[in-house]
Measured scan of single mutants.
Amino acid sequence: KRYRAVYDYSAADEDEVSFQDGDTIVNVQQIDDGWMYGTVERTGDTGMLPANYVEAI
């Protein structure tokens, strides 16, 4: 699945990823209600991200 960031996010922990509004997130997997795991296409960084900061595309 592919998602697009709708807000900027700065990683708060080493297992999270930072991204900017408009970034595409690929290979996304749902972890639980609030978190997903995926790769930021622009940077190649992979990690956890907050589900409410992205939307499906």
Rank of each mutant, 00 (worst) to 15 (best):
Lys1Asp: 13
Lys1Ala: 12
Arg2Ser: 12
Arg2Tyr: 11
Tyr3Leu: 04
Tyr3Asn: 00
Tyr3Ala: 03
Arg4Leu: 09
Arg4Pro: 05
Arg4Thr: 09
Arg4Cys: 09
Ala5Gln: 03
Ala5Leu: 01
Ala5Ile: 02
Ala5Phe: 03
Val6His: 07
Tyr7Thr: 12
Asp8Asn: 11
Tyr9Ala: 00
Ser10Ile: 14
Ala12Phe: 09
Ala12Trp: 08
Asp13Leu: 09
Glu14Pro: 12
Glu14Val: 13
Asp15Asn: 15
Glu16His: 12
Glu16Trp: 06
Glu16Val: 05
Val17Asn: 00
Val17Thr: 04
Ser18Pro: 02
Ser18Gln: 02
Ser18His: 03
Phe19Asn: 00
Phe19Asp: 01
Phe19Lys: 00
Phe19Trp: 01
Gln20Pro: 00
Gln20Ser: 09
Gln20Ile: 14
Asp21Ser: 15
Gly22Ser: 05
Gly22Phe: 04
Thr24Asn: 08
Ile25Tyr: 00
Val26Asn: 07
Val26Asp: 05
Asn27Ala: 10
Val28Ile: 08
Gln30Asn: 10
Gln30Leu: 13
Gln30Ile: 15
Ile31Ser: 06
Ile31Leu: 12
Asp32His: 12
Asp32Ile: 12
Asp32Glu: 11
Asp32Gly: 11
Asp33Met: 09
Asp33Phe: 09
Asp33Pro: 09
Gly34Trp: 14
Gly34Gln: 15
Trp35Asp: 00
Trp35Tyr: 07
Trp35Gly: 02
Trp35Cys: 05
Met36Asp: 01
Tyr37Asn: 05
Tyr37Lys: 09
Gly38Gln: 03
Gly38Arg: 00
Gly38Trp: 03
Thr39Ser: 05
Val40Cys: 03
Val40Met: 03
Val40Pro: 01
Val40Ala: 02
Glu41Leu: 13
Glu41Tyr: 07
Thr43Phe: 02
Thr43Ser: 07
Thr43Lys: 01
Gly44Lys: 06
Gly44Ile: 00
Asp45Met: 13
Asp45Lys: 13
Asp45Gly: 07
Thr46Ala: 08
Thr46Trp: 07
Gly47Glu: 01
Gly47Arg: 00
Gly47Pro: 01
Pro50Asn: 07
Pro50Ser: 05
Ala51Cys: 09
Tyr53Thr: 07
Tyr53Pro: 00
Val54Trp: 02
Val54Glu: 00
Val54Gly: 02
Glu55Asn: 07
Glu55Ile: 15
Ala56Ser: 10
Ala56Arg: 10
Ala56His: 10
Ile57Ala: 07
